[in-house]
Simulated scan of single mutants.
Amino acid sequence: MKLSERQVLEQCDAVTLKQLRQWVHSGWIVPAQGESGLSFDDVDVARIRLVCELRRDMNVNDDAVPIILTLLDQLYGLRRELRTIATALSKQPDEVRQQLKQSLFSHIGQQH
């Protein structure tokens, strides 16, 4: 679902138009550019709510917000990659999976 700035402000009453535009300008929120202006999807709205919670509920200052957002983006990216790898591994023959499992456990055992 795509929302306009006005619709986002209706859904996220903790943010002002000025704040929203500043967050977009700063790159904290990256909406699509629609024919009639910025177009926010569900991910954008969730991120806006997260920024509101960080600033209001957790008292995170503006210097720390982009650091937290970057770390979360990295975390979600790694989770996507791990899901892709897990899916690819599940499609491998049992013999290949067992070899990978043995290799992994022997590697982990060498580190301790």
Rank of each mutant, 00 (worst) to 15 (best):
L17R: 12
T16R: 11
I29R: 02
T70S: 13
V43A: 12
L71H: 08
I67K: 04
L69E: 10
D57R: 14
W23G: 00
D57N: 14
F40N: 01
H25T: 07
R49G: 04
Q19E: 11
P31R: 00
V30Q: 06
E53F: 10
L20N: 02
W23N: 00
M58P: 01
Q19V: 02
L71E: 05
L69I: 15
G27K: 05
I67P: 04
G27I: 05
L50F: 13
A46Q: 13
R55N: 03
R56M: 10
L71A: 14
I67L: 13
R21G: 02
E53H: 15
A46H: 06
S39P: 04
R56W: 08
M58R: 14
V30S: 05
D42T: 12
T16Q: 09
L54H: 09
A46D: 13
V51K: 00
T16C: 09
L54Y: 06
V51S: 01
A64E: 11
R49A: 03
D63Y: 11
D57V: 13
G34D: 07
L69H: 10
I67N: 01
I29F: 00
R56C: 04
G27N: 09
S26A: 14
F40K: 01
D44M: 08
Q19F: 04
W28R: 04
G37F: 07
R55C: 02
V65D: 03
L54E: 03
T16S: 15
E35R: 11
S39I: 02
I29Q: 01
W23K: 01
V60S: 05
L17D: 10
D41L: 08
H25W: 03
I48E: 05
T70I: 02
Q33K: 15
D41M: 09
E53L: 11
N59W: 13
D57E: 14
A32F: 02
K18P: 01
D62W: 12
